[in-house]
């Protein structure tokens, strides 16, 4: 019986295993090999040892891309988590038929294609005619040139990134729904205020979900590509006029691979990113072990 169940389990897992081997493990191994070669997609790869990795260390645009990406991650992740938690708490207060409507409305931005979001925010953030600066103008504030001032491009990208909090909100909302009511009621009877209840009951009870959101958001932030590419690199004209202020790591990786045909170098870039994400995730898990409350 047990053998039969195992066989069925593997049968159902087979499509995923095939997908993993063909579309993930295979390309990853190929990319690892290519990272030690000079390869332009057309000719045969030429073995160059560690040259690509040595070139990474000396490439100032790699340093700039890492700086931009890390800065974005450090600003975006806490903001996104706090806002998603706030939205989840609001959703948790809504009951009755309106609850479903609000859940849908909060999730809708996640359904918008990222390319469309990039284009939309290019208009919204335009320093001369964008809606954001128009609104700031109402309050007597002269808004910055979000899309053309190198000092303000990154904050503009962070604002855009906060558009899409639907997935995180839903995960946190689900966790909030699972917080045992009796704990909250007992605390209320003992005279705990709303902040104390949130700090000592809600937060520990949803800490596992919050930790998951932080990990996933951090990885996504380090791999940020499509919206930034659409905004600042999607057309040759946009690419020419942006400079390196919005150069994210994966954008640079893409440029090296598909614009300059340096596939070996792009592969080395990809493996460096993999290593960075692995280290950051490892640190987060170690820190999470101390802070996360598992039932």
């Amino acid at each position: 019986m047990r053998t039969g169940e195992t066989r069925w389990a593997y049968t159902f897992l087979l499509p995923w295993i095939i997908g993993l081997v063909l579309f993930q493990a295979g390309p990853m191994i190929a990319s690892a090999v290519l990272s030690f070669t000079d390869y332009d997609l057309i000719g045969a790869p030429e073995f160059v040892g560690l040259d690509n990795y040595a070139a990474l260390a000396a490439d100032p645009r790699v340093a700039r891309a890492i700086e931009n990406t890390l800065l974005y991650t450090v600003i975006h992740v806490p903001l996104a988590c706090v806002l998603a938690l706030g939205l989840a708490l609001l959703l948790n207060q809504v009951t009755g038929r309106a609850a479903g409507v609000f859940r849908t409305v909060f999730y809708l931005p996640s359904m918008t294609p990222t390319v469309a979001v990039g284009v939309l925010f290019l208009f919204l953030l335009n320093g001369q005619a964008g809606l954001l600066n128009e609104v700031l103008g109402v309050f007597g504030i002269e808004g910055p040139q979000w899309t053309s001032d190198p000092d303000w491009m990154l904050p503009g990208i962070v604002i855009m990134s906060l558009w899409n909090l639907g997935a995180s909100t839903i995960v946190l909302f689900a966790a909030l729904r699972n917080v045992p009511r009796e704990l909250t009621e007992a605390a209320m009877i003992d005279g705990a205020g709303s902040w104390q209840r949130f700090r000592h009951i809600t937060l520990p009870m949803i800490s596992a979900a919050l930790f998951f959101v932080v990990i996933v958001d951090t990885i996504a932030a380090l791999q940020m590509f499509d919206q930034v590419y659409t905004m600042y690199f999607g057309t040759s004209q946009a690419q020419q006029t942006t400079g390196d202020a919005a150069l994210f790591y994966v954008v640079y990786l893409f440029q090296q691979g598909f614009q300059y045909l340096h596939m070996g170098y792009a592969s080395a870039l990809a493996w460096l990113l993999f290593a960075v994400i692995a280290v950051i995730t490892f640190i987060q898990i170690k820190v999470g072990d101390r802070l996360v409350h598992y039932e």
Binding site: L122, N126, G127, Q128, A129, Q145, S148, D149, T241
Partner: peptide, 11 residues
């Protein structure tokens, strides 16, 4: 200046 000119030309 570039920041304003670029934003204006983008429209």
């Amino acid at each position: 200046g570039w920041k304003r000119v670029k934003a204006f030309a983008d429209t």
